[in-house]
Design a protein around this nucleic acid. Structure first.
Lengths: 191, 191
DNA sequence: TTCTTTTGCTAACAAACGTTAGTTTATGGC
DNA sequence: GCCATAAACTAACGTTTGTTAGCAAAAGAA
């Protein structure tokens, strides 16, 4: 185990770290290469371009979010429990991919077309999966009747910022964060 | 009224728009100048540097958040009403400065020292003012006993992302957004 | 061994970057 | 009308950008 990572893996990991710290546009290929321990042109043996790197980071994360959601959504039937399950799954993906998550949330806008368009589409689809659960919950009477778009948005905002929590406070466990956040939000939704 | 805006004002406004759309690092001075309708070096008649521009945008917003908070905090006594008042004030500042708010929230990291440090300090102070209200509310028994840091964070996340709501859905009024969001959060806090 | 693929290197390109210098034109006060 | 200041211009600076070309060393397969 703990197989020595390939250069390509090291490039990706270092890019995630630097993109997160200083922003995609502010990080140069020379700086990235230096951190990896090679020369800038050697990066192109592993990735076609700077954009190619960002693309892999962002779309790998997207894939993870979808997979975690789909796995979680099947385990529960009741609206509250179902919503709680996907909230926890979402937070779990963030927690286990801290750096990549931040790049995913904050740097996707630098993707070039046509990948930018595809990314936006996927993101929208994912958000709709969340909203469906809330809408159904409202319809079934499990949740209070309220503006679902607005509420779904508020929930999403809180979730998508949890990476800041992990970074700012090491004492909080993932369980604790997921539990408290979903409690707060679910209680607000109570009918 | 509607006084014709000075060139300096136009520069700032255009910078806000471009920085928001494409990110501070991705916007060049030539592009900014072109959008304003002047040549790049002419920008330096109004601002000392690119960083100077970002600084004015960010610190002007900071000033507005503080002023709105201080004005709102005096109007109410009860914890719930007080928290609701500052939430509304915060959302109101965002709503009336949509573009500058997004720059404030997403591009501050590109500030150079020493202003970056000052900015972080102010931001922390502002967040603490919010947390104080929550902590006092918990102590007085107005709010449920819970991890205040985590909860304060969740509230902040939802608030600070409201600009996305305004951008994505024009039908929602500012009143509606402020009312629904604070309702959701306050209900979750209920003891 | 020999051949092929991978992965690194140095040198260099064209373009874009923020900014400065020096000059001209427009504006407002006396 | 005269002078000072503000605000625009053109030209150019040195640096950094992402990337390509061409070549050398290492690794793996036959």
């Amino acid at each position: 185990m703990a197989a020595t990572q390939t250069t390509k893996e090291k490039v990706k990991q270092t890019a995630q770290k630097l993109f997160r710290e200083r922003g995609y546009a502010a990080v140069g290929m020379r700086e990235l290469a230096k951190e990896v321990g090679i020369q800038a042109p050697s990066l192109y043996n592993h990735y076609k371009s700077k954009d190619d790197l960002l693309r892999e980071i962002c779309f790998d994360m997207a894939k993870q979010f979808f997979a975690a959601f789909d796995k979680a959504v099947t385990t529960e039937e009741k609206s509250q429990r179902k919503l709680k399950a996907v909230i926890k799954a979402h937070i779990n993906v963030i927690a286990t991919n801290l750096e990549a998550s931040e790049v995913f949330f904050n740097e996707w806008m630098f993707l070039e077309q046509p990948h930018l368009g595809l990314f936006k589409k996927q993101r929208f689809e994912y958000e709709m999966k969340f909203r469906e659960i809330i809408d159904k919950g409202i319809k079934k009477g499990d949740f209070k009747k309220m503006n679902s778009k607005l509420i779904a948005f508020a929930i999403f905002s809180a979730l998508n910022a949890t990476y800041e929590l992990y970074r700012s406070n090491e004492k909080l466990s993932q369980e604790e964060i997921a539990e408290d956040i979903s409690d707060l939000l679910l209680k607000g939704l109570k009918s």
